[in-house]
Design a protein around this nucleic acid. Sequence first.
DNA 1: GCATAATAACGTCAGCGCGC
DNA 2: GCGCGCTGACGTTATTATGC
Length: 269
Amino acid sequence: MWWHQHNLCFRHPAEEDYSSGDLEQKVATIAETDESAESEGVIDSHKRREILSRRPSYRKILNELSSDVPGIPKIEEEKSEEEGTPPHIATMAVPTSIYQTSTGQYIAIAQGGTIQISNPGSDGVQGLQALTMTNSGGPPPGATIVQYAAQSADGTQQFFVPGSQVVVQAATGDMPTYQIRAPTTALPQGVVMATSPGSLHSPQQLAEEATRKRELRLMKNREAAKECRRGKKEYVKCLESRVAVLEVQNKKLIEELETLEDICSPKTD
DNA sequence: GCATAATAACGTCAGCGCGC
DNA sequence: GCGCGCTGACGTTATTATGC
């Protein structure tokens, strides 16, 4: 991938996910026909990395581009949540969180602590199953956030909840059942009361809280990265269309120039 | 069919910028 | 100053294309 930085044009040793840099260069070349220095100097990788570490974000570049050219749409800062959300869940009451299990099922944690589980193959509300925690109707902050899913040793599927609790899907019969348990014990526990950060005392609780925070941060970052890639894809498409438009314009201008030259300087034989 | 290359998508880390 | 979102960079894995 190529990109401009400090009047230099480098090829990074490791290719990136998207080749937006190629397009950026192409657009810059066509649109500006400037004196863009093509000095692919020999600098050591560390220094190069330092220089390249933070080029302007693609969003900024596109928005700057958009301000110059009305035809280029701006990438909005925030998108609606219509994408990535299972359609059969979107029709239900607005959940606070949606997660997909390792078997493809969707779990939606709704306001009030209700957990809705839907099968990917089902349409609409048919696949939804709901179970309500016994502490529903006002869960403490952060008490009903499913962190991740895992397959336990006994063949059941577990969805981890803060406070070291798990929602366990028992592998019995056609109708799956769900239980709230502590992950290390086989005995079901009826009530989930996740500890709030203010009530942490023991080192173990602190460690659990730190782990929970880390998992939450990673999960958020994971989603952010997905969104970022999606937006970047859009950005690349915008650049591609801009390249196409500019190439046509360039061609027309060249033809026009040739015509004018013919008119102004007729051949003398 | 198999091995390899190329490509796409993902998860994570690190760093920047912004709002509070 | 801190928390948080965004995103470049990087490594890994999955999928597809290609040559044999």
